[in-house]
């Protein structure tokens, strides 16, 4: 196999200890967010204070890694100050890039902090060259995180027609294929994935296990799945629930509990011109971060040097203990 361009490995961190774990495991860059609704992983006990983010930047830079601040939720009218403050804090701390989705916050970032590197979040849902080039021209974004709806061949086409780098997801949770536009959680709980930063807020999730170890999952007033004893579980999100619909019983009507795993497609993504490979999972533990980042570090290094890595050890960490290549291999993956 011929040598390939080595892409940046972008890894998740939900806590300062998680960031140090990711850096030590070989991350080139780590993405993380402040506590509160300004990022799309607003879970209890997760995320960084301003002081913790500053410490994280120091640690990462001392070890040759970058920090990307995710400020990628959408402020509603009258709430923009909190998002602007988060952007100002991130820039003053010296993060290497700010990841934004809201077009107003993208405008604010580009005007208030010219020269600050801007990455366009997957939450922006920009998947066409026309959309991405608009952000490039108007806000000088340097990188787009592509929605998980494109095949590798389509990614190559996009790459050839846009004026910025591409970051592509390679591992972790995948939800509805409408990045930044999902309103299922909002409908059921009144809290918004996109505006409050929380998909299936833990305060609304309830598990009930009976004597036979069958597990019922509820979100708010709705039962969204009932998992038999011995069956694998998934995240308690509406899009991963099973329902009785007109043509099928016990049906994953939206999406199945399965994790994206593109290790086998890494060489194709590298040839397609992808600059950065993103691992999902800021809500996951340090044990997950260490295992997944280490495995991808070895895989990327091996592929870029023309080798064949061992990529067999990630299944245990996947949702439902199942993996998929999703839309990256084919639009007909379901």
């Amino acid at each position: 196999m011929t040598q390939l361009f080595k892409p940046e490995l972008v890894c998740p961190a939900g806590t300062p200890a998680g960031l140090r774990t990711a850096v030590d495991a070989g991350a080139d860059a780590v993405y993380c967010g402040f506590q509160g609704p300004t990022n799309a992983r607003n879970f209890p006990g997760l995320n960084f204070t301003v002081a913790e983010m500053a410490g994280a930047v120091s640690y990462a830079h001392d070890h040759g890694a970058k920090v990307l601040a995710a400020i990628n939720s959408f402020p509603t009218a009258g709430r923009t100050e909190l998002w602007k403050e988060a952007i100002d804090e991130a820039v003053s701390i010296g993060v290497d890039a700010v990841i934004v989705a809201d077009i107003g916050m993208t405008q604010y970032l580009s005007k208030a902090h010219p020269g600050q590197r801007i990455h366009l979040s997957v939450q922006a849902g920009a998947s066409s060259p026309e959309a991405i080039n608009f952000y490039c021209r108007r806000f000088d974004i340097k990188r787009v995180v592509l929605p998980r709806i494109l095949t590798v061949a389509e990614i190559k086409q996009v790459h050839d027609e846009i004026g910025c780098e591409i970051e592509a997801f390679v591992f972790g949770n995948i939800g509805m294929m409408a990045e930044g536009r999902c309103a299922l959680t909002n409908y059921v709980t009144g809290q918004s994935t996109n505006m409050d930063g929380v998909c299936s807020p833990a305060s609304h999730v309830h598990y009930e296990e009976d004597e036979d170890r069958n597990l019922k999952t509820r979100l708010g007033e709705f039962a969204i799945d009932c998992i038999a004893c011995g069956e694998h579980a998934g995240y308690p999100t509406i899009c991963k629930g099973r329902y009785n619909v007109s043509h099928k019983q016990e049906y994953y009507a939206f999406e199945e509990p399965v994790s994206l795993n593109l290790t086998r497609l890494l060489p194709d993504l590298m040839r397609a011109g992808v600059t950065a490979l993103k691992i999902e999972g800021r809500q996951r533990s340090r044990a997950y971060v260490k295992a997944v980042v280490s495995a991808f570090r070895q895989a990327v290094d091996a592929y870029s040097e023309g080798g064949e890595p061992d990529i067999s050890n990630l299944l245990a960490l996947t949702e439902g203990s199942r993996e998929t290549q999703g839309a990256f291999r084919s639009k007909t993956w379901r």
Partner: peptide
């Protein structure tokens, strides 16, 4: 409302 949920299955 969301459709009715599935019922329990036998134990493994």
């Amino acid at each position: 409302t969301l459709p009715a949920m599935i019922t329990h299955r036998p134990l493994s």
